[in-house]
Nucleic acid binder design. Structure first.
Lengths: 190, 190
DNA sequence: TTTGCAATCTTAACACTGTAAAGTTACTGT
DNA sequence: ACAGTAACTTTACAGTGTTAAGATTGCAAA
């Protein structure tokens, strides 16, 4: 895994565990993200993670935080300065597409970010920061169009709902994904 | 748990396990829904469930099916014959409220119904039937208003997204819940 | 530089999980 | 009456999260 020769003290174990966990989650699924497995993959004993994370959930919360950072990046990439409300509407539509595509391309990560594993668990600071930033990104785009209260909650809801239903296999999309997403979100009138 | 005296053969174990699991899920959360715990609560050995369910996931799928049946009931209660499209709009709005309220009042069950535990697992017939019926109920209400393609997917998405975000603690509602839900879903123009 | 301390890591153990194998019990149809 | 089969129990195994006790090391104070 790591060519650098291991000393007794790893030096950057916390981060290494985080990366191994993220990689394992994405490529092998949540089942394979066990503390023991992550520790072994990182080349360290099974109890070593406890020097850096209170428990397994604490690790997963940090992985989720990285996920939100990625989502934020995906959304902010769609953001740009526009001259008309109509253009901003298109930006928002693109963000919706990006949101759903992110969810589909990162199923396990997306589920972790929002799902039950983490829902009832105390959030870390970094989690809150990244999660709020991601939502704030969308909120910003909405406010270019409408200042009405709840408009951003509404936009987030429809996009998040669509993403969730697809990821959890309650909706099967046939045909072009992008156009499907645009069709569904088109009904949102903000 | 059960006053009826146990014989070697339970007689209705499958159903009893299902009810114990549902009850435990609702009152104690998913953590406490272990096969061993459910078996013990039902007054039966730890391996007994395997005579009725292939594995733990198969049990959970059936519990989820019961959940969809409950959701279907909650939604269909809002359904009634109306004389104007405007009235049907109100019915749909009520369904949205019912959907979100159901999710909040049955957090753990709602998460199970849609979440990762079940997402990648082969669904049983009863699960499919109940889940489709619940969605069909909403779809029916939408079609009274609009025949446009994707309109029902859109309605489902916004309501499901809102429910998920609240259940997973990404949105905290302050003030009256019903009015909040109506405000958010109002932006949907079908 | 030396020394002691605290952080980091390992080993060993515990209680709990899902699940399979093999044996016991009792219902069911002939 | 009696086989056969479905339902159930006991036992066992591998894997999990987590803790406790001890080994190792970097680092800061002397």
């Amino acid at each position: 895994m790591n060519t650098a020769k291991r000393t007794y003290h790893h030096g950057d174990l916390r981060n290494a565990l985080l990366m191994t966990a993220l990689d394992t989650l994405v490529t092998e699924g949540l089942d394979k993200v066990t503390l023991r497995n992550i520790a072994k993959k990182t080349g360290v004993s099974q109890a070593a993670p406890y020097a850096h994370f209170k428990d397994k959930s604490a690790l997963l919360v940090e992985v989720a935080a990285v996920g939100f950072s990625k989502l934020k990046y995906a959304l902010s990439s769609e953001l740009k300065e526009c001259e008309s409300t109509e253009e901003y509407r298109y930006v928002l539509s693109n963000m919706g597409v990006a949101y759903v595509e992110f969810a589909i391309e990162n199923k396990a990560l997306f589920r972790l970010m929002f799902g039950d594993v983490i829902a009832e668990f105390p959030k870390s600071e970094s989690y809150s920061i990244e999660a709020n930033a991601a939502f704030g990104c969308m909120e910003g785009a909405v406010q270019k169009i409408s200042g009405v209260d709840f408009a951003s909650d509404s936009a987030w809801s429809i996009v998040h709902g669509l993403a969730s239903l697809i990821v959890d296999n309650r909706i099967q999309v046939e045909g072009d994904l992008k156009t499907y997403i645009r069709e569904v979100t088109k009904f949102l009138d903000i």
